[in-house]
Simulated assay, not measured.
Amino acid sequence: MQTWAFIYKNSTWDLIPPSRKKKLKKDFPKMAEDLYNVHKKHYAAVKHLLQFLKQFPVHIKQIKRHELHTKDFKNTHLVITAGGDGTFLYASHFLEEIPILGINSEPNSSVGHFCTVAFPEGKEKLAFLLSKFLEKKPVLKPLYRLQIHLNGKAIAYPVLNDILVAEENPAATSRFLLKLNNKEYNYKCSGVWIATAWGSSAAFSSAGGKKFSETNQKGEKQFGVLIREPYEKIPKQEKMRFVVETQNLEIISKMIKGRIYLDGMHRQLPFVIGDTLSISIYKKPLWRLGK
């Protein structure tokens, strides 16, 4: 019998301390009501999804997102996430060969770019994909990722969406040296975004970058680099550039309290003066169930 890991997030309402909930209910009742309604809808969707999955002859292993550990994926055949992109991205960091299926549990309030289906609207599609998976005829899409090394040491979490390198304090200037194609560039700015094609429509785009495809005209996989709010005017071709799979990007920190953010805020690494970050295409894609 197959084992499927069902991973779901805590709602925002779960994360608010009781004293703050009390204040919200008193001072901002509409905000409190909206947050609580989303909370109820999310857990109702989780409950319905678990009931829906009972029709399949598999063992379901339930895990909360913040409790995930590498050992949770031992002898697991499929990972299903319920939430939005944040839950999908967090779970993806643990996966090498195991396919993943993202379900947007509350599409009216949650971003689900990586989610194959929304629930409950996508029940028929979900049933089809899971049935095909059990028949060993899965509909899979490979998503390339980024590998990072910090001071020569490989970081275990492959990046699917984007990387932000910046000062810990958002009001401070980010300073670093960028090395690419045997050239060096010194920057003072508010940070640098590094994005895959999948992440190019998210914060990368909001910061002024352009959405791009997985490969260039030569068929080489590529990722984008965007200098965020440069202190001095720089050439257009420097503000946004591409790195292909045969190249390696290096960033050397000149910051006292720099940080590296991997696929959002949940995974962070210190990046202090003299540290070297290397970024390249990861050798193994993430296998997403559903096109």
Rank of each mutant, 00 (worst) to 15 (best):
N169I: 08
T3E: 10
A127M: 03
P230M: 09
V139N: 15
E167S: 14
E245N: 15
G83Q: 08
W287T: 04
Q247W: 08
W13P: 10
G102P: 01
E167I: 07
K233D: 11
I273K: 06
G84S: 04
F6R: 06
I16F: 04
G199F: 01
A45Q: 03
I260V: 15
V139S: 15
N186F: 09
G83C: 13
I252S: 15
R65Q: 15
K291P: 05
V117K: 00
Y261I: 00
H39P: 05
L286M: 13
K136H: 09
Y36A: 09
L78F: 06
Q147T: 12
G191P: 09
E121Y: 03
I60E: 06
E184Q: 12
I60P: 01
K210D: 14
R65D: 12
E33D: 12
Y144F: 14
A197H: 05
F271T: 11
A166E: 12
L95M: 11
P142H: 13
H39A: 11
G191Q: 09
Y8K: 01
P138C: 06
T173S: 12
V38Q: 05
I227M: 11
G122H: 03
Y144N: 11
P285V: 04
H42S: 10
Y157C: 03
V225H: 07
A197M: 01
P230A: 09
H77C: 07
V244Y: 11
P107H: 09
N182W: 00
A197E: 01
F223S: 01
L15N: 06
F52I: 08
T276I: 13
I98S: 00
K239C: 02
V58D: 05
P230F: 06
K137M: 04
F73A: 03
G290R: 09
A166P: 04
L286H: 12
I194K: 00
L35G: 02
R228N: 14
K47G: 04
A166M: 07
G122Y: 02
G122W: 01
N151M: 10
G102N: 02
S11D: 08
Q62Y: 14
Y36M: 14
E220I: 02
A32V: 02
S110M: 13
Y185K: 08
E33F: 13
T173Y: 09
Q217Y: 12
K123F: 00
V165Q: 06
K74R: 09
R288I: 13
A195Q: 09
S110A: 10
P57H: 10
S213A: 13
K210S: 14
E238P: 02
L249S: 08
Y185W: 05
A166G: 06
C189D: 06
A207Y: 08
I281K: 14
Y90V: 04
G152T: 13
H66I: 08
L68Q: 14
A127P: 00
K41N: 01
L134S: 08
R241Y: 03
F212N: 02
L50S: 01
Q62R: 15
A207D: 11
Y36Q: 15
L130K: 03
K239Q: 15
D162R: 04
H39W: 09
G86I: 14
A195P: 02
V58K: 10
A45C: 10
S200D: 00
L95W: 12
P138M: 06
K30E: 08
L134G: 11
E106R: 11
